[in-house]
Simulated scan of single mutants.
Amino acid sequence: MEIPVTYLQHLTMVMVQVGFAGLNVMSKLAMNTGMSPYVLVSYRQIIAFFFLFLLAFFFERNTWNKITKKVLFQIFITSTFGATMNQMLYFVGLKFTTPTIACALSNTLLAITFVMAVIFRTERVMINSVPGKAKVFGTFLCVGGSMLMTFYSGPIIRIPPSGIHWEYVESMSSGSETGIDNAQNMALGAVLVFLSCVAWAVWFIVEEKMGKAYNSLYTTTSIMCFFASIECVILTACMERSLSSWNLGLNIRLLTSLYMGIVNSGISFAAMAWCLQTRGPLYVSAFSPLLLVIVAIVGWAIMNEKIYVGSVLGALLIALGMYFVLWGQNKEKTFKKLGDEEIGGEIGLNSVSPCDDHHHYQQQPVEQ
């Protein structure tokens, strides 16, 4: 039985968020050992480049001669915003602020992407229609649910432990928490995390436009990681002067670098690029609040963290908001296709040469 493309896209984006949930746990453990966030991001890009280059060589090397200067420039922009700026700003911001605030601010990504997509006309909103209102309402629900999960706890929900409690992770996390009492540092960290979301949204917009001109996911993503690895290494060299900061060894640092490079920057970037090209920036960003729900589940399962009423209510709002956004987008897409078919029929009937004009219209791609 063949899986419909729409369901496959939904499953892909859910799995991407599951991968990012693992990133939160793994990167925290690595930085708790003293690993520099600059070094961590650099290794992530280097490993991702080699992983994706192998995939591009085996599956897409016949398309390499079609890369133009315009496409290369677009890839450079995506590497600067989507990889270097987004990741560096987030991890450095996380260092100056609390994980709670960083997680709350990162969930503004949906709203930022929504506004930028409308401004750059990659997403059309028929605000007077029911689907258009559903997309706007769903966006507010997702952001509101994220804030509720972050800032409101409420009573504890009594549920038994998962049975897969990982004491090593809990001891590493609890033993390395440090208080952040400098208000200036807190504000700086919050600004950096917010700017990382803006950079992430820019990547969504540029990646969708680039995909229409050059549709080779492994190739474009590997080149993006190549550019990003150079940028990150240069930045790290300026911030971390000691060569010992690059040491890995057979420990959590190596495991985290491999995980982030292969799963997060390798597989996830290519998967998101595919969904961006087929469904647009708003669709991809609509799944970002789901990360907070998955992190809460992983925290309960692995680190024996408590589940609160606020977490459950926030998760329900996020799920409902995602439904409204995806439903509204699908309905607007259906309306546009029906409108294009009606226009095509009118062209075929009213033109001087019906066969030629109708054939010409059929050759035009339907804008997604």
Rank of each mutant, 00 (worst) to 15 (best):
V5W: 01
V25N: 09
M26L: 14
M31T: 14
V39Y: 02
V41Y: 06
R44T: 03
F50W: 07
F53M: 14
A56T: 03
N62M: 02
W64V: 07
K70P: 00
V71F: 12
V71C: 08
A83R: 00
T84I: 01
N86H: 11
L94T: 00
T97K: 06
P99W: 04
A104S: 10
L105D: 04
L110D: 06
M126I: 03
N128T: 08
V136C: 00
F140D: 00
F140H: 00
G145N: 03
T150A: 15
I156L: 13
I157S: 07
G163E: 02
E170D: 14
S171G: 00
N182L: 07
A183S: 14
Q184F: 10
V193H: 01
C197Y: 02
S222C: 13
F226K: 08
V233T: 12
G249F: 04
L254G: 10
L254R: 04
Y259C: 05
W274K: 09
R279S: 11
L282Q: 01
A286I: 02
P289C: 03
L290G: 13
V295N: 15
N304V: 04
S311L: 12
L313D: 03
L313I: 14
G314M: 02
L316I: 13
I318K: 04
I318M: 09
I318A: 03
A319P: 02
M322E: 08
W327P: 09
W327G: 08
G328P: 08
Q329D: 14
N330G: 10
E332I: 05
F335V: 01
E341L: 05
I347C: 07
S351F: 05
H358K: 15
Q362P: 02
